[in-house]
Write a protein that binds this DNA or RNA. Structure first.
Length: 727
DNA sequence: ACCAGGCTTCTTTTT
DNA sequence: GAAGCCTGGT
């Protein structure tokens, strides 16, 4: 039962009743402890699986945990309530609202929230340029995470006062649309428990054990929620690492983990400090960075692994050279048999940095995949179609209705829409009702009235179809009956857009076996709660490109941390505030500890940022790592050299022709192997057409037109490196 | 009603 | 350097 676990891990797994905090450093086997503990609760302590609740932050983590628990504890474990905070709350809200006969509501994503907030700012007559919808939303979000309700909010500054004015308006708009935003899923669940203690009682009674992963990233609402759910049996088992708290900007409160002992005086604290992932050199580097932080309980990871290879720092002239270095280095490692592309990861601070990396990987023919940034569910056509479905599930959802009322174009212009909205407000009715009664609205012209009557009829028809059909059937019907698909084909990038819609159909098909009244709702729930991190997929032969935030919880043989420059990482917006700087430092710690063995830290002397070319000093984090951990050929800036903003950082720069020139014996190309008009195949871009080709320096540069990312894109590819083939 | 073109504003990080 | 917003023309 306890085989393969070290003593503190065993202690955590077999702990009896009462609160437990497992302080689990990076790579110390926390998922292992969590899954083994769940199996132990089921198999040894004979707790029924359905009385166990385990909460994670991503669906992917939940899925993996489910899989591992199933293999440890068998079929019974299916009954374990296991999910993200948001999905657990959604389940509770849906169930409780069904009891009250109002099962349907929409979950608004950030772009929907943006629309609602714009309207709220207008209604509240706030025209302060500081209060952009985005800024206001994040302030409101903070309040919700703190469980501060609009009426209980006490403004303490001018900005606060403005927030105090919009917050209730925003909230009222959500209510009118019968919608929740992400934060509401948490805060409304807590609110429900407060308002109806007997409901809480049911859940608290049911869950004999509550386990929480990544506890350092919980916010106040999550803390209260978890405490409530565990209030009856007091078996709260949380796992986390304060050094990996990187979501403070999203409302996570690191004090939840730091103060756990104080909040639960009888808590057992178990520390896992043996690292099973990384070499000693990596751990030393990570420790050198993190130990600068003041607000942390001192702890140090250890390993019985060897020192491992030294860390390589690389200074590039600009971001292109940096990216090229990374791509070539991976190619070199692969060529030498040291690593496979799939065991390599490139991590950056901001998504914008992926671009130059991507370009270089394409040029050098290194297979890659980017996680995040390209969000399927944020594409226009996907949002359009989802808006139809969301509106069908919830006719009060005016945001979705607004989105589709004139898509495809039905000659219902902005003026008419505004008139309908105003009329709805004046009469205290919803947008859908005012659409149906458009003929009563004086300010809507005759042509628009006719168009609206047509739309209303169409939408009625969709509605009656949807009530008796499943999600895929409804989707199909909507696409045909509205003419959306046909219209989409005529739009720019029609082909790829249609493909995206078809992709959505594949998602819908997962729900075809559910009864009609559940099918669509379930699909929309799934769609609402997918996150970038869920898309990470270790299979396949490609290197992974992602932000350091998304990398938390993952591990790779080879890790490149790129953009190691002050103002890039740490980010310029965090550099002044000590607390935010500490969070950046933790992020760096997370990045470093993703590596099992090989670590590269790269920085560029100059880099284009937001259109301008900037020169930044090497990152202070880089400077914190002791010299002796770097390879002799590293471009390592001298200790402390960049902290006072002085000139001359004293790095021992290589001249650019000393950059690793990929010495693998490569055949030279002396005559053209491709001709204009050839159909070619590229493993990333697929099939394309050659538009030009040119020989240069023993290589052939082929320009190929691909249909990529929704448009025809011409890429210059190296025949030598890109693996381009005749199709 | 719709389009094109020029303007601004961004960019952290995301369930 | 892109996407979104506004403006003014058709």
């Amino acid at each position: 039962m306890l085989d393969g676990l070290n003593p503190p891990q065993q202690e955590a797994v077999v702990h009896g009743d009462g609160p437990v905090l497992v302080v689990a450093g990076a790579g110390s086997g926390k998922t292992r402890v969590l899954t083994r503990r769940i199996a132990y609760l089921i198999n040894v302590l004979h707790r029924p699986a359905w009385t166990i609740l385990a909460v994670t932050f991503t669906n992917k983590a939940a899925g993996e945990m489910r899989e591992r628990v199933l293999s440890l504890a068998g079929e019974d474990a299916k009954e374990v309530a296991l999910g993200t905070f948001h999905s657990v709350c959604l389940r509770i809200l849906r169930r409780e609202r069904s009891r009250a006969g109002r099962p349907n509501f929409t979950i608004y994503d950030p772009s929907d929230q943006q629309n609602v907030m714009k309207q709220a700012l207008l209604t509240a007559q706030i025209r302060d340029p500081r209060m952009t919808p985005g800024v206001t939303l994040s302030l409101v979000s903070k309040l919700k995470n703190e469980l501060i309700r609009p009426q209980a909010y006490v403004p303490a500054s001018y900005t606060d006062e403005l927030v105090g004015k919009v917050y209730p308006v925003y909230q009222e708009l959500l209510r009118k649309n019968n919608a929740y935003d992400f934060d509401d899923l948490l805060s409304e669940t807590v609110e429900l428990f407060k308002a109806e203690p007997e409901v809480l009682e049911r859940y608290a009674d049911r869950y004999s054990h509550v386990l929480v992963d990544e506890y350092q990233d919980t916010n106040h609402a999550q803390y209260v929620l978890v405490t409530m759910l565990a209030s009856k049996h007091r078996n709260l088992f949380v796992v986390g690492d304060a050094d990996q708290a990187i979501y403070g900007w999203r409302g996570a409160d690191i004090r939840n983990i730091l103060d756990f002992e104080r909040q639960f005086p009888d808590a057992r604290i178990i520390t896992l400090d043996q690292n099973y992932r990384s070499t000693q050199n990596i751990l030393d580097a990570a420790h050198a960075v993190i130990s600068v932080n003041t607000k942390r309980p001192e702890k140090k990871l250890w390993t019985d692994k060897d020192a491992g290879p030294l860390i390589r720092a690389f200074e590039a002239r600009n971001e292109q050279e940096e990216a090229q270095f990374v791509a070539r280095e991976i190619r070199r490692l692969v060529h030498r048999g040291t690593a496979e592309p799939r065991s390599c990861a490139v991590m950056y601070r901001t998504n914008a940095q992926s671009r130059s990396i991507e370009d270089a990987f394409i040029h050098e023919g290194v297979p890659y995949r980017i996680v995040g940034s390209t969000r399927f569910y944020e594409r226009r056509e996907v949002k359009d179609v989802l808006s139809y479905l969301r509106w069908l599930a919830n006719p009060e959802d005016g945001v979705s209705l607004t989105r589709i009322i004139n898509v495809p174009p039905r000659k219902i212009g902005d003026t008419s829409q505004k008139a309908l909205n105003d009329w709805a407000d004046i009469n205290g009715i919803g947008l859908w009702e005012s659409v149906q009664r458009a003929s009563e609205v004086e300010s809507v012209g005759p042509a628009a009235r006719k168009a609206l009557a047509g739309a209303a009829e169409l939408f009625h028809e969709l509605r009656s179809y949807a009530t008796s059909h499943t999600a895929p059937e409804t989707l199909e019907y909507v696409l045909g009956r509205t003419g959306y698909l046909k219209w989409l084909e005529t739009e720019d990038d029609g082909r790829t857009r249609v493909e995206n819609v078809e992709e959505l159909m594949t998602v819908a098909q997962d729900f075809q076996d559910l009864p009609p009244e559940e099918s669509l709702r379930s699909m929309l729930e799934r769609v609402a709660l997918v996150a970038d991190a869920d898309q990470i997929d270790e299979s396949g032969g490609a290197a992974t490109l992602m932000t350091m935030h998304l990398a938390k919880g993952l591990e790779f043989d080879v890790v490149f941390l790129v953009g190691m420059e002050d103002n890039v990482f740490p980010h310029s917006r965090s550099i002044q505030d000590p607390d935010q700087l500490e969070e950046e430092r933790r992020l760096c710690y997370v990045g470093i500890t993703r590596s099992k063995r090989v670590l590269y830290l790269t920085y560029a002397m100059s880099r284009r940022l937001m259109g301008r070319t900037e020169r930044n000093a090497p990152s202070r984090f880089l400077v914190n790592i002791p010299e002796e951990l770097f390879t002799p050929d590293s471009n390592k800036p001298r200790q402390g050299s960049n902290l006072d903003g002085g000139t001359g950082w004293g790095w021992n720069r290589w001249s650019s022709d000393e950059i690793e020139p990929a010495r693998a014996p490569v055949p030279r190309i002396t005559e053209s192997t491709f001709a204009t008009g050839d159909k070619v195949y590229h493993k990333i871009f697929g099939v394309g057409t050659v538009v030009a080709t040119e020989l240069s320096g023993g290589d052939e540069e082929v320009s190929v037109a691909f249909a990529a990312k929704g448009q025809m894109v011409t890429k210059r590819l190296s025949v030598l490196y890109s693996g381009l083939e005749h199709a």
